[in-house]
Structures are given as C-alpha cells and as structure tokens.
C-alpha cells in the first residue's frame, strides 16, 4: 500500500512540474514526455496575480481615466471631487492651449469652445489642466473665451491629497 503510493507520487506530473527534474530512470519508457509537461506554473500564477490586482484597483477607483501631460504639475487640493464622466479637456502648457490634445491659438479659443458647446445640447463642462506655477494671466483668456462661448462649468484638475 505504502509502496504503491510512493510510485504514484513519482509519476505525478504536478510533482514533476514543481521539481523540474528528470526523476525517471534512464531507459524508462515515456521519460522525455514527462519533462515536456514540466510547465513553470509559479511565474504564470504570479502574472495572473498582478493582472487581478490591476483589475481590482482599476475597478474600485470608480472614476474616469484622465491622461495628464508629464510636463504639467497639477496643483494639490483637499476637496477635489472625482471625475465621473468623460469631458473635454483644455490643457495650458507654457502659454499654449491644447483642446483635447490639439493645439489651438489664443485668438481661436472662443470659436473652438463655441463649437464644442454647439455639439452638445446639454450643459457643457470643461476640464482645465494647468501647471501649479503658471501665472493667472495665462488663464484669463480662457475664462473670457468660455464665458463668451456659454460654458458655465469649469473644472480645474487637481491632485487630491486625501
């Protein structure tokens, strides 16, 4: 009884996969087949764990993924609210304006924002991404243009600190 249990353990593919050693005797039938079955299961499980953690964190955040330029250091804020829907983004980078990653001139701000407003019958919101060290003078043309275009809600992107 004990002997037969040991024999079955030796032939187990799982045990062979864990040890990754050729435990069979030379000349034994089917030895090469057993080696081919030795999969590195540990690393595959590691990869799956990482994917699971990635998905778990991604689904629990509850917000919309918002790309932020690496050249911009967003200001910090304690009372920022989560971005819950896709909205148009206007980025201010060294005095240049980018509406959804397309560069637009200062003079055409009103026209482009009015076109954005015209596309949607509902209330249009605009997310503004700007560097924390930027001067307010760079934001001023955007405030005027959004007011003229009829965009009432501006959402300033921040990094929540709590």
């Amino acid at each position: 009884m004990r002997k037969s249990a040991l024999v079955s353990l030796r032939k187990s593919p799982l045990l062979a996969a864990m040890s990754l050693k050729d435990t069979s005797k030379r000349g034994e039938k089917g030895a090469s087949k057993e080696l081919a079955l030795a999969l590195p299961l540990t690393s595959l499980i590691d990869a799956f764990c990482i994917i699971v953690i990635y998905l778990l964190i991604g689904t629990q955040s509850g917000g919309v993924e918002t790309p932020v330029s690496a050249k911009i250091a967003l200001p910090n804020a304690e009372n920022g609210i989560t971005v819950d829907k896709e909205i148009a983004t206007l980025r201010i980078e060294r005095g240049s304006y980018f509406l959804d990653d397309k560069m637009i001139s200062k003079d055409s701000l009103t026209e482009k924002l009015a076109a954005l407003k015209g596309k949607s019958p509902q209330s249009v919101e605009l997310m503004i991404q700007a560097d924390t060290n930027m001067e307010y003078a760079d934001l001023d043309p955007l405030l005027r243009a959004s007011s003229e275009a009829g965009i009432e809600t501006l959402r300033f992107a921040v990094v929540p600190t709590r």
Binding site: N79, G80, T82, V83, M127, L143, R155, P160
Partner: peptide
C-alpha cells in the same frame, strides 16, 4: 488620481 475643483462662471 485626478480630481477637480469646480467653478460656476
């Protein structure tokens, strides 16, 4: 994470 501070203009 990115949050927002909203204003009504």
């Amino acid at each position: 994470h990115v949050g927002t501070i909203d204003t009504k203009q």
